[in-house]
């Protein structure tokens, strides 16, 4: 399964980049989301995947008695997921704003940093 997941991560990264290379702004954002998902999955995979053993101390015991999934990558990804939502919404709004101002969806027409050039 690890191989499959690694392949998936590669697909997510590759397609994410491909979408970011498009000139459409919506595709850019979709690309960022794909890339973010890929990164989350990559961290998850590299923390080693464990089946059926969530990092929750069972019942009455005070420590783990059996194998458990590594909680550190999970904590990392949890924050990453929430942050990426903030990022996505900001990016979406920025795109929308840019669209109302310059009336174009073509990123190539948004390359000027100031009004003179």
């Amino acid at each position: 399964m690890e191989i499959l997941l690694a392949l998936m991560v590669g697909i997510l990264y590759g397609t994410g980049i491909y979408m970011m290379l498009r000139r459409s702004m919506v595709k850019l954002i979709l690309g960022i989301i794909l890339l973010g998902n890929g990164a989350n999955l990559l961290i998850f995979l590299l923390g080693r995947i464990t089946k059926g053993a969530p990092p929750i101390i069972p019942g009455d015991s005070k420590v783990f008695t059996e194998a458990f999934a590594d909680p550190v990558p999970q904590a990392l990804i949890l924050t990453a997921i929430v942050i990426s939502f903030g990022l996505q919404s900001f990016a979406i709004v920025l795109v929308k704003r840019a669209h109302t101002v310059v009336r174009t969806d073509d990123l190539d027409e948004m390359n000027a940093t100031d009004e003179d050039s």
Binding site: E2, V9, G10, G14, G38, L46
Partner: peptide, 21 residues
């Protein structure tokens, strides 16, 4: 062109992940 670049990049990430594993 972009497709080829992305594919290579994806392959590299996959290889990297497997290598780390």
């Amino acid at each position: 062109r972009d497709g080829i670049l992305s594919t290579i990049f994806g392959l590299i990430v996959t290889t990297l992940a497997l290598e780390v594993l």
